[in-house]
Simulated assay, not measured.
Amino acid sequence: MNDASMYADFARREARGVSPMYRRLSLAICDDEEILTLLQTVPESKRQPSLLLGVVRLLGGPLDDPVAFHDFTVSNWSAVAAELRARATQTHEAGRCALLLPVLAALPQPLALLEVGAAAGLGLYPDRYVYRYDDRVIGSSGPVLDCVLTGTAPPARLPEVVWRAGLDLNPLDVTDPADVAWLEALIWPEHHRRERLRAAAAIAAADPPALTRGDLVDDLPGLAAQAPPDATLVVFHTSVLYQVPAVRRGLFVDLVRGLPGHWIAVEAPQVLSYEGLPPAPDEALHNVLSLDGTPLAWTRGHGQAMAWFA
């Protein structure tokens, strides 16, 4: 898929009905030869829509008008390109914990959580949030995570977590205003998720997780070995592996399958493939939730909906 097609696909499958502003900008970019030419000057992995839009937002660029966005991006391209090269889409939306909860609550307790691609570690606190699946509420304190759940009953309890650790090439610090500013820049402009991010960041700052700078293949076994032996180890990741080259992705899958405990993945079916998947609920972009390599549900990118089919 070339860059123009990638932005058109983003507008059609991800932003439509979710962010009118990002849909309008993405449609403009896919026809903007000047910006598309500039994107060719950075590595392919740094051209993705969510990264470009987040970087321009971080730099104070306008998002409400495609012409103004074009002018700002072109005139400030050296700064934009530098940020694209230095950063990654570390959104790590806390709302994705609503996708993990039905699996986590059903595993033998207590749990030792190890998140691959942890960013600031906000996904390591599924026991500290409140979940609302339609009219069913689980939890009593923390930010509220809404998820439309179909195909299965909501979980009956929160998990018991006794150990939390994260692995990331560039872990972020929720006590660092610059890191929090980047996380906020990645939130789509119309969304209320900024308040949720700040509430989740406050939880993490009060009880910081153990975040390790490292590679998901080279450094995962050593970190997993630190988990307490009397807890169920759960290695998990959400929307991470698309940033990993295919060869390293395959090595990671082989490695994580051999670890003790369980493996939860929430990734696009083009990234982790499964045989016999049912059709997705609609043409919007969906990921697949899986446990130990078995697909369980279609999920939306920010945790806003899950269609269980297992």
Rank of each mutant, 00 (worst) to 15 (best):
A231T: 02
A225Q: 12
N2K: 08
A265H: 13
W298Y: 13
E190N: 11
A118I: 02
P279C: 09
P43Q: 08
A305V: 02
F72N: 07
G121Q: 07
E184N: 02
A231R: 06
E115H: 08
W77F: 09
V247M: 03
D230H: 14
G95F: 12
Y129T: 04
A200R: 03
A15I: 02
R157G: 00
A118Y: 10
W77M: 04
V148S: 13
P278C: 11
A181H: 05
E14I: 08
E33D: 14
A310G: 15
A11C: 09
P209Y: 04
Y7S: 08
A79C: 00
S273R: 15
H286I: 04
V42W: 03
V103T: 15
L145D: 06
A227V: 06
C30K: 06
L255M: 11
V74F: 09
A28Q: 01
G121R: 01
P221T: 06
V288P: 01
L39G: 07
A284K: 12
A82M: 07
T294Q: 15
M6E: 14
L172V: 01
A280W: 06
T212S: 09
P155R: 10
K46I: 00
R13M: 00
L99E: 15
L241K: 02
V266I: 13
D9W: 13
D134K: 10
E93R: 02
D292A: 07
L114G: 03
V266W: 01
D168Q: 09
P126F: 10
L251M: 13
Y22P: 02
T41Q: 14
L114F: 07
D135I: 00
T294L: 11
L272Q: 10
E275C: 01
V137A: 05
R300T: 00
A225C: 06
P279W: 07
R24D: 14
A307V: 12
G139K: 11
F309H: 14
V240M: 12
N76V: 00
D179Y: 04
P108Y: 04
A82S: 15
G151E: 12
A202T: 10
A246V: 14
V240R: 05
E190P: 02
V217M: 03
T175S: 15
A199N: 03
L149K: 03
L251T: 04
L272V: 14
